[in-house]
Simulated scan of single mutants.
Amino acid sequence: MARDGSVVPADPQALVVVKKKTQSSRSWILFDSMGQGTILDVDKYAIMHRVQIHARDLRILDPLLSYPSTILGREKAIVLNLEHIKAIITAEEVLLRDPTDENVVPVVEELQRRLPQSDNNHQQGDGKEYSTGQQDIEAAEEDESPFEFRALEVALEAICSFLAARTTELEMAAYPALDELTSKISSRNLDRVRKLKSAMTRLTARVQKVRDELEQLLDDDDDMADLYLSRKLASASPVSGSGAANWFPASPTIGSKISRASRASMATIRGDENNVEELEMLLEAYFMQIDGTLNKLSTLREYIDDTEDYINIQLDNHRNQLIQLELFLSSGTVSLSIYSLVAAIFGMNIPYTWNDGHGFMFKWVVIVTGVSCAFMFALIIAYARKKGLVGS
């Protein structure tokens, strides 16, 4: 093995209970074409030498650095950085980073289940049953996706399901909180909705980046062609069928692999190296799924915006009611100020000659002043209603 590295057979049950000290940035798990996992504790130079990629590509998978979701096609590998799924896929093996992470463990189990080829039937008996089994194997292999596509599909399915689950959790928390806020506007409910909106914004950005990456791949056939690692491997070293029979006479599985490589080589010679229909259909399926998740988040954002508009309308209505109340109070204050002015004039301690012998006029002054003030108050309110300043 490469320098400063160790290899430990992978145990699916042990992956869940491994101590945190093994969860270092050097921890990888290697899957071969049969789905057998092996824990690797190696440095970045050993990984670069094994899969033949540059340091800048491996730096994308560093968990200590913040890189957006990326799918890069290189000469002999696919560099995959999708949220917590950080992997390097070659034509024959998959390297997955931090296999003990709680979000990565389901990906590990799914790779172990789906990477092995559908060739269990080759262990049937001799004679007719064996021939029938071989025909079934060949038919299944002809329709089987390349190894790198099976690994890529597992990663895409895992990240789409992960983001969809986070979206569902956010919806279950957001809609009741918004409904509660519309029924009762309080500081507690406003703060709760603010936190949910912040979480939605962050999740939307993550989903949008994955969607943009898939869309960018779908828009460029050359980028999709770079992901056909098996095709490039077969075109680089084509193998003839007769040579395969001499090298592996007793291995129908390896022989079938070589026959597939030969067919891929012939397809390349015929000019089919630009045929990316299979990968395009695979990416389109998960693009539609991640786009559906993004649509759910967009619907949630619209619901939040509608709720904010409704709350603003309610607050504006309350503000208008306060303004109307202030208008009533101001009108009453102006009317009473006139009444107070008359009372103040007659209440001054100044001798008036016309005040002597006219005490009976006091009640008439009070009555006339009160009626005048009331009439002025009604006149102000009528004018305000005519101008639409207060409700009817």
Results as ranks from 00 to 15, higher is better:
residue 206 R to Y: 02
residue 389 L to R: 07
residue 90 T to P: 05
residue 260 R to L: 10
residue 338 I to V: 14
residue 78 I to N: 03
residue 253 T to I: 15
residue 152 L to E: 02
residue 38 T to A: 04
residue 105 V to C: 03
residue 246 N to C: 04
residue 37 G to M: 09
residue 302 E to S: 12
residue 283 L to K: 02
residue 337 S to R: 05
residue 293 T to L: 07
residue 340 S to C: 08
residue 366 V to M: 13
residue 45 Y to M: 10
residue 362 F to A: 07
residue 201 T to Q: 02
residue 104 V to R: 00
residue 273 E to R: 15
residue 376 M to G: 00
residue 341 L to T: 14
residue 139 A to E: 14
residue 254 I to V: 15
residue 306 D to T: 14
residue 316 D to T: 15
residue 209 K to W: 02
residue 156 L to W: 00
residue 213 E to N: 09
residue 85 I to H: 07
residue 221 D to K: 03
residue 275 N to P: 10
residue 200 M to L: 07
residue 384 A to K: 00
residue 286 Y to A: 05
residue 55 A to P: 03
residue 323 I to E: 01
residue 123 Q to A: 12
residue 43 D to N: 07
residue 19 K to N: 14
residue 366 V to Y: 11
residue 245 A to F: 11
residue 392 S to L: 12
residue 305 D to A: 11
residue 356 D to Q: 13
residue 62 D to Y: 01
residue 329 L to P: 00
residue 70 T to V: 09
residue 57 D to I: 01
residue 380 I to P: 01
residue 187 S to Q: 08
residue 206 R to V: 09
residue 56 R to S: 09
residue 253 T to G: 06
residue 287 F to L: 14
residue 36 Q to S: 10
residue 188 R to V: 14
residue 24 S to E: 02
residue 218 L to N: 05
residue 9 P to M: 00
residue 174 A to E: 09
residue 123 Q to W: 11
residue 152 L to N: 06
residue 56 R to H: 12
residue 308 E to P: 04
residue 317 N to V: 13
residue 377 F to T: 01
residue 48 M to F: 04
residue 114 R to L: 12
